[in-house]
């Protein structure tokens, strides 16, 4: 996309330079009623944790700090498929902003920058393969959503392949790479999105316990698609000793994420929107949501155990 834009820019530069002009014009911009924006990914054997913020008009706001506008005056209930209902309560929390606001290759140490957050939290632990529904009562309106907590992904084994050429025929001395894959037994009749989660080798983290901010947005998901219910290979890692990576480690720690349809659709479209924002020639990306009348996601995600992959 960048190349395309560059090309167009170069070709049109002369014409734009000679003739184009900008004009501040007044358009009758659409009216907008704020909506609740939900962020909640249920995990097996964890309590419900939900962020609830308020969206605002894109065209008429005075707040330029882009801070989260938490909603405090709502009533949230979560009900499982057996009818057990609980009302969520508000808890104040601190999250490490530094942890999720930098690129994946950036390993420099920085001081923690804690951000105050407000979470709606439940008391009951959710179960895998169980359906949950959410109801939010706010501003005189009701917003609902449903999801099913996915099971921990079944990894049959991990394999390492050496890829010659990597797309360029002829293959040079430095043009091969070792790539590791998870061999996953996909769950039939269920939409799954698999993504790898790289874990710091010094961390004791063992997958699934790392909270919400696991940098999952950094990685693309593999949809089961045509492989639904079959064995499939999901990219796990590449040999980092190869050029282009900051570390020369031949050992990586990864776990596999399994997002259900609601979570996968939301996270994928969110990432697409981030990639295309600011490109005037690209079609805008609408973020998919399963919140009826609102925004965001009420989905499910699970993590495998931590795998140690050694490239020899």
């Amino acid at each position: 996309m960048k190349n395309k834009l560059l090309l167009f820019s170069l070709l049109s530069a002369g014409i734009f330079g000679l003739f184009s002009c900008e004009q501040k014009v007044t358009y009758q911009l659409p009216q907008y009623d704020p909506k609740p924006a939900v962020f909640c990914l249920l995990q097996p054997d964890s309590v419900v944790k939900l962020y609830l913020t308020e969206s605002r008009s894109y065209f008429n706001y005075g707040d330029t700090l882009n801070k989260m506008r938490f909603i405090f005056d709502a009533v949230l209930t979560v009900k499982d498929e057996t009818g057990v209902t609980e009302t969520l309560h508000l808890e104040k929390g601190l999250e490490n902003d530094n942890n999720f606001n930098r690129n994946p290759w950036d390993t420099t140490k920085r001081p923690d920058n804690k951000v105050e957050t407000w979470l709606w939290v439940g008391s009951n632990k959710t179960k895998a393969n169980t359906k949950y529904s959410l109801e939010i009562k706010w501003g005189g309106k009701s917003y609902t959503a449903e999801t099913r907590v996915p099971d921990v992904p079944v990894i049959l084994n991990t394999i390492i392949r050496k890829t010659e050429g990597r797309g360029f025929g002829g293959g040079g001395q430095n043009d091969s790479i070792k790539t590791a894959f998870f061999v996953v037994q996909d769950v039939a009749a269920e939409k799954n999105f698999y993504g790898r989660l790289e874990i710091d080798s010094n961390s004791n983290q063992s997958g699934g316990s790392s909270g919400y901010f696991d940098n999952i947005y950094r990685y693309s998901f593999t949809e089961d698609g045509a492989e639904n219910g079959r064995k499939m290979e999901v990219y796990a890692s590449e040999d980092q000793k190869r050029g282009g990576f900051p570390t020369d480690s031949t050992v990586v720690f990864v776990s596999l994420m399994n997002a259900n349809k609601e979570a996968g659709d939301y996270l994928t479209s969110l990432q697409h929107q981030q990639n295309t924002q600011g490109d005037p020639f690209s079609e805008p990306v609408l973020i998919k949501s399963n919140i009826k009348g609102g925004l965001g996601v009420f989905g499910g995600m699970s993590y495998s155990k931590k795998y140690r992959i050694v490239f020899k």
Partner: peptide
């Protein structure tokens, strides 16, 4: 028409 902050980012 609207915007909202995504906590994970």
């Amino acid at each position: 028409v609207g915007q909202y902050q995504v906590p994970m980012f």
